[in-house]
Design a protein around this nucleic acid. Structure first.
Lengths: 340, 340
DNA sequence: CGTCAAGATTGGAACGATCCAAGAGCGGCT
DNA sequence: AGCCGCTCTTGGATCGTTCCAATCTTGACG
């Protein structure tokens, strides 16, 4: 069923090496020979056995990626999109994406070592880096090629990483609301200390400070912090709303969902902007900040290619507007001039 | 860095073949030799080069799985959970899961052929089968090992498949509501003709028919059908609610989300049960029917193992209750006797 | 002490591709 | 015609493992 280089060679009346060259270094062949070989390849439906090639070349061009147990977690749909983008782009480069699971970071490192040792994968992509993350050092020590999606938390980032500029996203969202005439814009975020959470609040704070000149304590009065769960956000956002806030910028879509729920309970309808543009935002139809995971995937792949230097990339997220009129984001000037 | 069988053999003072046997057929070795070899393996941190093994054994033990572009689709988190379950279970069997993307079924078949030809994957898992699905026939013709997640729609199912008993799920949900004293239980489903949608309605219809003896036209009056989007369900469920329905069983979590929204708009609070137990259900906290994707993954792996026969497995889903008191699912008799 | 059988160990070929260096073909030039 | 040099083609070795068949130990028994 499966034909080999030898079969093709015999069929085309040339040597094995010539067929290999026809596929890998076509320039070396005379035109007529090349055509003849390619015709034979086509006719026999030849596909190179990548196991053999990889054995010889000592490379597997396969990216190992841990898939985390996100059962019930709202962020999970993020991974889906990212996986798809990464796989599609890797494919275009002749690379493959292989999944593995791990219960914790320690096991992840162990499995990465195993996969690398077995030559099943030779590049790795770490997600959800966090303070005190021991994985980076372990992989650096093992001399493995990897990129992290998420800023490094170690003092000296000697490895490549890609991250999303969270502050730019919330800044954009906040400015859209300011443009629409909102002034009392609240922020629903996570407890202090989570890197990305603080980053996301910063964008809102900077936009508010720049346009309205608010002091830090005034910003604090417009902020609530709670765990990333709808029920927690329901209570938190409720208190903000009762303080007369007219719009909300949130650090996640689950927080935004809580915000919308709180508004609905109070009989209010006001713009709420989420973060991550997950299925929650799409499903409920509220605007959210998209991380542009396609760009992240592309940057990660690029960084995995040129190993030597530590490449760092920051991706600008993008506000995804949804039904602006309903959510009241459209600037006052634009209102009424609905698209024909 | 990487040690080979030869290294281990030299270190242990035995032949290469003996080391191989120590790892693959330990019974063939004398106890003392085995210990010595294993000690050397341990000491050198030897891991077999799977590329070489696969080349020799002509098998790769890798499952190819298409990841679909579900951007913005609510069903996407389903895939996440399934992926995780599948990967974890495959891992335990020494198998791997490799992703690939495809824009349509035709491309999927083409890519599967390519992956199989390149010996990058040797088993495949088809998801979301549908009427007129040409993939099954193509893979059968190509003689590839595969399983489909989803019933086959061809008349003669000559391949293995796994599916979830949707009717059993909605039956369970409906019976839970009936037990709680509800009588006018509406069903929000998809347009007729989608296999799984009809299946899910059937469970509800059977439970209603069995306990209340409703005729078909009475069931029709309790049914609305709309596309799988929150906004569509919002309108559809609204009309049902105005007909005095006291609870809803839905064919998906997005429909359920619409149902909850409709109830909230009307100032009602009533039990709504979704399907798929996605992040929407977890996030908003409503009960949903879990497909038990772990069981599905296990069954699929099992079916991929014993190729010869066509194995078919039907998995019973499970109602996931959430905050029963709030949603009014708890039977009247049980109310008040809250768990200590 | 020799023989035998069972068990333990060994050497060599094979999987299918790529790398390397040497060999054949061809045309142009003197 | 003879030689040179370029391009194209060739055979052989190699990656690391497993399969196959053959050889070497070892202990028991007559």
């Amino acid at each position: 069923m499966a034909s080999t280089l030898a079969d093709v060679a015999a069929h085309a009346g040339v040597s094995v090496q010539t067929v290999s060259n026809a596929l890998n270094n076509p320039d070396l062949l005379k035109r007529s020979t090349l055509d003849r070989v390619l015709a034979a390849v086509d006719q026999l439906g030849y596909a190179p056995n990548l196991q053999a090639r990889r054995l010889r070349q000592r490379t597997v061009a396969t990216i190992g990626l841990r898939i985390e147990p996100l059962v019930g977690n709202i962020a999970s749909s993020l991974l889906d999109v990212f996986l798809h983008e990464l796989t599609a782009r890797a494919d275009a480069q002749g690379k493959h994406v292989l999944l593995f699971t791990a219960a914790d970071d320690e096991e992840e490192v162990r499995k990465i070592r195993e996969l690398a040792g077995q030559r099943v994968a030779d590049r790795f992509l770490l997600t959800s880096t966090h303070p005190g993350d021991a994985r980076v050092d372990a992989l650096l020590a093992a001399g493995l090629a990897f990129v992290s999606f998420g800023r490094p938390w170690s003092p000296a980032p000697e490895h490549s990483w890609v991250d999303v500029d969270g502050a730019a996203g919330t800044r954009q969202a906040t400015e859209a609301l300011l443009d629409a005439g909102h002034r009392r814009i609240g922020f629903v975020g996570w407890p202090e200390g989570s890197g990305s959470g603080d980053d996301r609040r910063r964008g809102w704070a900077e936009a508010m400070g720049a346009q309205l000149g608010l002091a830090e304590h005034e910003l604090d009065a417009l902020t609530v912090r709670c765990e990333d769960a709808v029920s927690d956000a329901l209570a938190g956002a409720g208190s903000l709303l009762q303080r007369g806030v007219s719009a909300l910028v949130c650090a996640s879509d689950s927080l935004a969902t809580g915000g919308i729920g709180a508004a609905s309970q109070l009989g209010l309808r006001l713009p709420v902007i989420g973060f991550d543009n997950t299925s929650l935002a799409a499903g409920l139809g509220f605007p959210s900040i998209d991380q542009r995971l396609g760009d992240v995937a592309a940057a990660a792949l690029a960084a995995l290619d040129d190993e030597p230097g530590a490449v760092t990339t920051i991706v600008r997220p993008q506000l995804v507007r949804r039904d602006d009129a309903r959510w009241g984001i459209t600037p006052a000037a634009d209102r009424g001039s609905s698209p024909s």
